[in-house]
Design a protein around this nucleic acid. Sequence first.
DNA 1: AAGAATTTTGACCAGTTGGAAAAATGTTAG
DNA 2: CTAACATTTTTCCAACTGGTCAAAATTCTT
Lengths: 239, 239
Amino acid sequence: MPPIKLKSSPSPKPAKRQHKAAAKAVAQVKEKARPLTRIQREKQDIILEAALDVFSLHGFRGATIDQIAEVAGMSKPNLLYYFPRKEEIHRRLISELLVTWLAPLRDMDENGDPFPEIRSYIRRKLEMARDFPRESRLFANEMLQGAPRIIEMIEVDLKNLVDEKAAVLTAWMDQGRITRTDPYHLIFSIWATTQHYADFDVQVRAVLGPARGGEGRFEDAARYLEQLFLYGLTPRPKG
Amino acid sequence: MPPIKLKSSPSPKPAKRQHKAAAKAVAQVKEKARPLTRIQREKQDIILEAALDVFSLHGFRGATIDQIAEVAGMSKPNLLYYFPRKEEIHRRLISELLVTWLAPLRDMDENGDPFPEIRSYIRRKLEMARDFPRESRLFANEMLQGAPRIIEMIEVDLKNLVDEKAAVLTAWMDQGRITRTDPYHLIFSIWATTQHYADFDVQVRAVLGPARGGEGRFEDAARYLEQLFLYGLTPRPKG
DNA sequence: AAGAATTTTGACCAGTTGGAAAAATGTTAG
DNA sequence: CTAACATTTTTCCAACTGGTCAAAATTCTT
């Protein structure tokens, strides 16, 4: 597994109603903007890594601080020294995630050729399912629970991005370069098919069996999906 | 929301290592096969309904008996009288679910015409996503957690069924009636695209916005998916 | 090396969790 | 109608939960 390096979110966004105890290591930032120490950076990374493991597996409610602390190899109070609240850890993970998660769609270029652009989008999403399955599952868990902690981000940032890219797809359709179809549902279907290989990994592997369930499954999936969407989107004379 | 009536699982399968306390209402079945009373039937249904609500939202670990009891409108000890263990409830839900869940695939008929068969399969799966979203989410939750409680069912029953239907699809390909492609990944992509509308419902609705996110979204999805798979699977002369 | 700042630990807490036990109440077959 | 059985409530518990706090240990700066 490659080391996961997600870009950190641009700014910690000032909490409206600061939690009582959220002031320890964080207060400095507010008052003096003291930079993080080496240990703080290291430990926070370790914690986020561990939390990703646990949250992606059990969801927010099902995950416990003790569990995260154990995976992170530190005591619970020590962990709480860095992140005073369970929610804090989760929020950080989710907001970092969204940036990374949407990059491939963001990169779909209006001025490129439709097929290479879409093909590349699918490939990148599939690579993410392969390389960052925990992130995918974290996101899926949040969705299953009704996205209580990120609904605004979904309704604003994500919606805007999708609106924009749907417009690009529509333009390509208007130019007759891809089959006319519903651009929103097209995007949904790309999300669904690619993320499936991360979120339902157990099922995929079990069904494919030992023979075909190895790492090659991602190559097979890529080939299949490419064909599906290629054929599915190729314009054809009506008949 | 239509009343959910899932067929009950064929047999409760004798637990290898019977839990200490799992003997109350259940013991009778083992010893005397006393039939369930009216109240037992009613209350069990109510509990399973409530449990479906809670488990599908929070996953196994995130759900609490108190919560389920509250939704079911009874006290926790009362609930535990009918299902002595939390796991018991979950197991029942999952095993009942699998039967229903696979029916559409099971019904895909080798002797039918490929396109109507596949089209009907997609439609039925989409209807299930619309009418039984909680069941879909329950299943998704289990998968995200690595399917600890149903891995054997997946590896045996599900795998066998998929193997069988993959063979049917392959036969259709051999006859040149649908495009040659990977039958397993084809099935995966149908699962993924249809279940997406249940599991990621919040996201779908948020992205589509108030205008297009109403009930009509399932019709739109059906149209889109039909086109995608129809075009994606139509054989064409190579060139 | 000393003092200041940071990090870690251990002891603790109140609320929640899954579950047990038994007493109290309902239901129903004869 | 009543004994036998089924159901419900009350009380309780030990383990776990998220989180606090002060003191101890460590690290950093000079």
